[in-house]
Design a binder for these strands. Structure first.
Length: 220
DNA sequence: TGCCAGGCCCTCTTTAGGGCCTT
């Protein structure tokens, strides 16, 4: 069954929802489906809520993916239907903006799975996504790798559990996001680095980041 | 730890190609 924090019903406008999917492959347009989703709510850099659930989309998980994620066909067979889980996940996110590591990937599955709800699809399907991978490339160009695990090692982030499970990866991405927000504030003397500023930072070229951030400060 | 796709980014580029990153 889906797991929630008992003290947080859903996100509010001040939250950022950090999301991670485990899936059967890389592309929903090629028939791949989500097998697990986790969402971590951040407020001012602090985790204030969690959502996590396996989901049964009725498709087989390839052996390579079973060993890669540790999520087996038997595990998803006992999980709630994907539609139920996605509806609950969307309610949990509410109107909060989203963040993921390599957001292009998670956005595709977020939109594809919610689209399967048809007329019941919530407005969260159109939520903007910021990307910790793009932001890390802007902020830490010297890093030899910008994989989530490599970023965690670079910054000495605390272990969150088994890599390639949704909640552990979402927790790690949330910790990386908090570090990115802190570094943006320190490096560019920003009072805060909310989702809108993150979107500006990831949309510019690396060399233009200082200029874009200065403009953001002046506009604030 | 591989393949599938797709977006971003770098360079030996821009009339392109290939690596990275996600599962």
């Amino acid at each position: 069954m889906p797991a929630f924090d008992a003290n947080v019903a859903h996100a509010d406008c001040a939250d950022i929802a950090v999301i991670d999917f485990e899936t059967t492959g890389l592309s929903p347009t090629m028939g791949d489906r989500a097998t697990e989703v986790a969402i971590v709510l951040l407020r001012s850099g602090q985790v204030v809520g969690r959502f996590q659930s396996l989901m049964n989309a009725g498709v087989r998980i390839p052996p390579f993916i079973e060993s890669f994620t540790g999520i087996t066909n038997a595990m998803v067979a006992a999980a709630p239907p994907a539609a139920q889980v996605m509806a609950e996940a969307a309610r949990f996110v509410g109107r909060a903006p989203l963040v993921a590591h390599n957001a292009a990937f998670d956005r595709r599955f977020w939109q594809a799975e919610l689209a399967r709800l048809g007329d019941a699809a919530p407005p969260a399907a159109d939520a903007p996504f910021a990307c910790t991978l793009l932001l890390a490339r802007r902020l830490y160009p010297q890093a030899p790798s910008h994989k989530l695990g490599a970023m965690a090692a670079l910054h000495g982030l605390a272990p969150t559990g088994r890599a390639h499970r949704a909640l552990a990866d979402a927790e790690m991405a949330a910790a990386l996001l908090a570090r990115i927000q802190a570094d943006l504030c320190e490096r560019f003397s920003l009072p805060e680095a909310g989702h809108a500023l993150l979107m500006q930072a990831q949309a510019c070229q690396r060399q233009a980041l200082p200029v874009v951030m200065r403009r953001a400060v002046q506009a604030a």
